[in-house]
């Protein structure tokens, strides 16, 4: 962390290799050798634990699933005949799958955009001379401390049709009770609210950490140029935060597209994996679950999961690209 004036932070620019150059300076021969060996080998050692453990506990399941997706594989069934790309062919024309993808996307947008905007706002509010800052900082990230299960139990109560605090409050304004699970817009909003409630503060903290790394003289320089607070925010803060925003967007994409527990618990009761009477809020992950554990069609479930995986990769790269472009304008 270098907000020290003498060590400016190279926070700008796309993340890439650090500036090469002045490395081959005058050094003793043996130490150069050792250092070369060090810089050649140690990076691999540092990343080795990850790849080692990942290969066992991450890659193997992935490959296994790919294999399964090429079979007519009934869970706990006796035989698993090869079926080639049948599962994938079925998926292309599967309305339920496309519906779940659309829901996932909708909930993702409704949770990510407001969440990150709000987080930026909160971070900039927190990044001021403030009394009780510890209190404010802690209180906004407090929701993280609750489990999804607890969140869902509490929010289900709040969103209850007959006895919920939210409908009760709306009733005070003459709005008749909303059955939140019943339509797309309402179920999407309610689920997004749970996600937003839980993660906005966390993102705000990440943004705050990055904001604190911005040297103050940049703001002073901007102020000297006559930039007001808003201009300072858009011209200095946001561009310098670009790597951080990129990071949060990618994380949100990955988390958002795998959304499972919140919608599942929100649609409490029998056949909750359907995500509502007409699958108003069934996400792709829930559809994977339905196929694997309700229909026991593990082959098809694996195919859906693999497609989901590829879609996430695609979206994460698109988002990364978009955010880079966005920041690049300045």
């Amino acid at each position: 962390m270098s907000t020290d004036v003498t060590t400016p932070v190279p926070a700008t620019g796309p993340p890439g290799p650090p500036p090469a150059g002045n490395r081959q300076s005058r050094k003793e021969h043996w130490s150069a050798l050792r250092s070369r060996a060090d810089s050649k080998i140690s990076p691999y050692l540092y990343i080795a634990p990850f790849f080692l453990l990942f290969a066992i506990f991450g890659l193997y399941p992935l490959v296994y699933t790919a294999w399964v997706s090429l079979h007519d594989w009934e869970l706990a069934g006796a035989e698993h005949p090869w079926s080639g790309l049948d599962n994938y062919r079925q998926l292309v024309t599967d309305e339920v799958f496309w519906n779940s993808l659309w829901n996932t996307f909708g909930i993702f947008v409704l949770s990510t955009v407001p969440q990150l905007t709000l987080a930026l706002l909160i971070a900039s509010l927190l990044n001021r001379r403030l009394r009780g800052r510890t209190f404010f900082r802690l209180s906004v990230i407090l929701p993280m401390a609750t489990s999804v299960a607890a969140v869902s139990i509490v929010f289900s109560q709040l969103f209850s049709r007959d006895f919920g605090l939210i409908n009760w409050t709306l009733g005070g304004f003459g709005i008749s009770p909303i059955e939140w699970q019943a339509s797309k817009w309402s179920s999407w909003s309610a689920i997004s609210l749970m996600v937003n409630w839980r993660w906005t503060g966390y993102n705000a903290l990440i943004f705050l950490a990055a904001m604190q790394a911005i040297p103050r003289d940049l703001y002073e320089a901007a102020a000297l140029d006559g930039a007001g607070p808003w201009k300072q925010f858009t011209r200095v803060t946001v561009p310098l935060l670009r790597p951080t925003i990129l990071f949060t967007v990618i994380i949100a994409t990955i988390g958002g597209f795998q959304l499972f527990t919140e919608p599942l618990l929100f649609n409490s009761g029998s056949s909750n994996y359907q995500g509502g009477s007409l699958r108003q809020s069934q996400t792709v992950s829930m559809y994977v679950w339905e196929n694997a554990f309700v229909k026991f069609d593990f082959g098809y479930a694996s195919a859906v999961a693999w497609v989901l995986f590829l879609i996430i990769l695609l979206f994460a790269s698109l988002n990364a690209l978009a955010v880079r472009r966005l920041g690049g304008k300045d």
Binding site: I153, S156, Q157, S160, R161, D162, F163, E179, Q181, N267, S268, G269, S270, N272, S277
Partner: peptide, 8 residues
């Protein structure tokens, strides 16, 4: 109009 086994 409930869903069976739901919280409501």
């Amino acid at each position: 109009g409930y869903k069976s086994f739901s919280d409501q």
